[in-house]
Design a protein around this nucleic acid. Sequence first.
DNA 1: CGATATATGTCAGTGTTATTGACATAATAT
DNA 2: ATATTATGTCAATAACACTGACATATATCG
Lengths: 162, 162
Amino acid sequence: MQRKLPHSNLYLREEELRRGIELLYFAYRDFTRDPDNILADSSFGRAHHRVLYFVGRNPGTTVSGLLSLLRITKQSLSRVLGQLVEDGYVDQVSGVEDRRQRLLYLTDKGKAFEKELFETQRQRVAEAYKKAGPEAVAGFWEVLLNIVNEEEREAVLRQIEK
Amino acid sequence: MQRKLPHSNLYLREEELRRGIELLYFAYRDFTRDPDNILADSSFGRAHHRVLYFVGRNPGTTVSGLLSLLRITKQSLSRVLGQLVEDGYVDQVSGVEDRRQRLLYLTDKGKAFEKELFETQRQRVAEAYKKAGPEAVAGFWEVLLNIVNEEEREAVLRQIEK
DNA sequence: CGATATATGTCAGTGTTATTGACATAATAT
DNA sequence: ATATTATGTCAATAACACTGACATATATCG
């Protein structure tokens, strides 16, 4: 076991840990504000956005696929997904191999709305990337990935490397 | 205006922007899980945690100080803060200069609980920092700060450099 | 002094997102 | 034939947030 020298681990002091915690909180707060503002004019909320986003990124995903990705309950998803289907943002198609499954796809209307919501966050993140530069962005990804639960990292990697 | 060469801005493609968005979502999801699990056994929720955290970090802050930091409404804060005061986690002290103000402090009980909640996040973030190394951590901070609304960055800097 | 502004608190109503538990149906797998 | 899986649904509950309106105490300004 190697003894830790305080001066070589300055970035691991409580002060620096709290800095990460607080930045994560404030950044997430503002990051979710843009789409929330758009959603406020619709009958949808943040949960609908998440479903639109991940169905858009994973066309043909199933209900259980979404459940494990979002880690919410079936009952929560059911309400949100039902509204999106009813309002014509998401299509459900019976699976060909397994007809119990409902494969999920964005309709054109769904794609357009997802794009509108994404655009606000795209701009914010692109600005932040540009200001910070590619090396900082690489560090940003690396730390975030390590904050994810270890047993989920593989699933997240599969998602983000799509 | 400089023309952007595609190959020099690979990290600004939609794919990389979506990667940041998704990592932020997944990391935040897991990052809030630890304290949420502890809070589930208490009568408190995430909102109480936020108040405990920021009162702990800013002893003597006022109600309006918290309101602008957390950006929630007075009515929302009032309920949460009232419970924390009633249960002996937070002390309210009338201001000396301005007796309308209620200066907020954690009690010993409040400090102990905040520490318990912080500990779970501290470990997670410390692990992530260690794995990624100091340069990555610097990039992590920089990008997160740039994601924060521009007009709020100064306030966030004041907070995190405390 | 009187008017106005500020800091805080509170009441009533509403909405979103999530939870748990129980149960139902259809299709697949053993 | 039975068990399991994928999905859906009903009912009840809770945390967290909002808006709007109003109240009180204190401070500040003209």
